[in-house]
C-alpha cells in the first residue's frame, strides 16, 4: 500500500527529541508526524492548577513540585506557582518525590504537599513515597494526585472519527513499567500499528521506519523498537507497587475532557494521604476554561501549533496562554524553541 501516512508520537519527550534533532525534516515525503497528548504538564486541567495554587498559598504549607509545573497557568491568566513563590509562598522544587519525605520529617510542625504529576513512568515513584510515608507514620505529608494513564488517551484518539492517526509511536518509558500487554490490546481493538519507541534519534527513526513498513504492508501489530530497555512484561514490581497504592479513575484532561480510566487515585489505606481530603478547600475560581488556547485540538492531533493565531506572538514560553507552551515537552514550546515555523 502507498501513503501518505500519518503517525502520532504520543510522548512529549519524543516530540521534543524529534524537533531537537530535526528528524521531522528528514522524513520521506509520504510521512507526517503529529504530536500526541503525552505531556502530563500539558494535560493537567486548570482546575488542578488552581487547587495547587490554593494549597501552596495556605499558611504553613510547604508545597513540593517538579520544576515543569511551576509556570503552568491556572484558570486565571498569569497565576502560577512560580509567581506565588515570588510573593512569599514556600514552594520547593524537587527532582524526586522521595525528597518530600525528608522535607516532611525535617518540618514536623508544617504540612507538606507533593504535587504528583506524570504518567505510569512517574507514578511508581509517587507510590513508593506513599508506601514509605505510611511505613514511617509521617503524619504531615499529603499528595495532590494528578497522575494520568497514557493508553486510555491513545484509545480515545484511535476511536475518534475525525482522527488522522494511522499508527502510534508508543511511549518507551511508560512501556518500561507497564510492559506491552495493554498496547497489544489497543492493536487488537483498533487494528492499527503500534511501535514502542525510545528517545534517541536513531531509536526514533527505527520506530518510524517500523511503523511505516507495517502500513505499507497493510499490517497492524505491536513492534518493540526499544528492546534495550522495554520487555513484554515491563517492570512487574513497579506495576505491583502502582496497583497497591493507586486505582484507575475517571479524570478530566485539559483539552480532552473527562477520560474514563484516564487517571489514578489513591486507594484503600493510602487515601489518608490525599491532599484533596486533608484540606478540603476549594479554589476561589474553579472556572475551567482555557482561554484562546487551542491545546485540546493540538493534543488530539487535529491542529498544529502553527495553526494557532496566538503562537509565538501573544503566547510564548515566558507568557504562556496554555500548557503546551510551558513545558519543554509541549508541542508548542518545542516548535517555538527549534524554530519550526
Amino acid at each position: 500500500m502507498t501513503g501518505p501516512w500519518t503517525l502520532m508520537e504520543v510522548c512529549g519527550g519524543q516530540t521534543h527529541a524529534l524537533l531537537r534533532w530535526g528528524l521531522d525534516q528528514l522524513l520521506p515525503a509520504d510521512l507526517r508526524l503529529i504530536h500526541g497528548p503525552g505531556c502530563p504538564v500539558c494535560v493537567t486541567p486548570a482546575e488542578r492548577i488552581d487547587r495547587a495554587l490554593a494549597l501552596a498559598g495556605q499558611p504553613g504549607v510547604i508545597f513540593c513540585s517538579y520544576g515543569d509545573m511551576l509556570q503552568v497557568p491556572g484558570s486565571r491568566p498569569g497565576h502560577d506557582l512560580l509567581g506565588l513563590r515570588a510573593r512569599g509562598a514556600d514552594v520547593r522544587l524537587l527532582t524526586t518525590p522521595l525528597q518530600a519525605l525528608a522535607v516532611a520529617r525535617d518540618h514536623p510542625e508544617r504540612q507538606v504537599v507533593m504535587l504528583a504529576v506524570g504518567f505510569e513512568t512517574t507514578a511508581p515513584a509517587t507510590a513508593l513515597l506513599a508506601r514509605q510515608a505510611l511505613a514511617l507514620g509521617v503524619p504531615n505529608l499529603s499528595l495532590l494526585v494528578c497522575h494520568v494513564r497514557v493508553v486510555p488517551a491513545m484509545r480515545l484518539i484511535a476511536a475518534d472519527r475525525a482522527t488522522a492517526v494511522q499508527g502510534f509511536l508508543a511511549a518507551g518509558h511508560v512501556a518500561a513499567v507497564m510492559g506491552t500487554a495493554e498496547l497489544q490490546q489497543l492493536v487488537d481493538d483498533h487494528r492499527l500499528p503500534v511501535v514502542v519507541a525510545g528517545f534517541g534519534p536513531d531509536e526514533l527513526l527505527q520506530a518510524v521506519g517500523a511503523c511505516r513498513r507495517q502500513l505499507q504492508r497493510g499490517e497492524a501489530r505491536l513492534d518493540n523498537a526499544y528492546a534495550s530497555v522495554v520487555t513484554a512484561d515491563g517492570n512487574p514490581r513497579a506495576r505491583r507497587l502502582l496497583a497497591s497504592v493507586f486505582e484507575p479513575a475517571d479524570v478530566p484532561w485539559r483539552g480532552l475532557g473527562l477520560l474514563p480510566g484516564g487517571g489514578l487515585r489513591l486507594r484503600g489505606r493510602y487515601a489518608v494521604l490525599d491532599a484533596d481530603r486533608r484540606f478540603g478547600i476549594l479554589p476561589p475560581d474553579a472556572s475551567n476554561h482555557d482561554g484562546p488556547c487551542i491545546s485540546g485540538r493540538i493534543l488530539r492531533g487535529l491542529a498544529r501549533p502553527l495553526d494557532c493565531p496566538a503562537f509565538g506572538s501573544a503566547c510564548t514560553p515566558d507568557h504562556p496562554l496554555g500548557a503546551p507552551m510551558v513545558s519543554d515537552e509541549g508541542a508548542c514550546a518545542a516548535h517555538l524553541r527549534y524554530r519550526r515555523h
Binding site: 527532582t95 513512568t121 512517574t122 511508581p124 515513584a125 518509558h173 513499567v177 534495550s228 530497555v229 513497579a238
Partner: peptide
Amino acid sequence: LVHVGLALALVDAA
C-alpha cells in the same frame, strides 16, 4: 534506567 529517583529498568548495555 532512572526516572525521578527510582530505578525502573535494567539497560542492556551491549
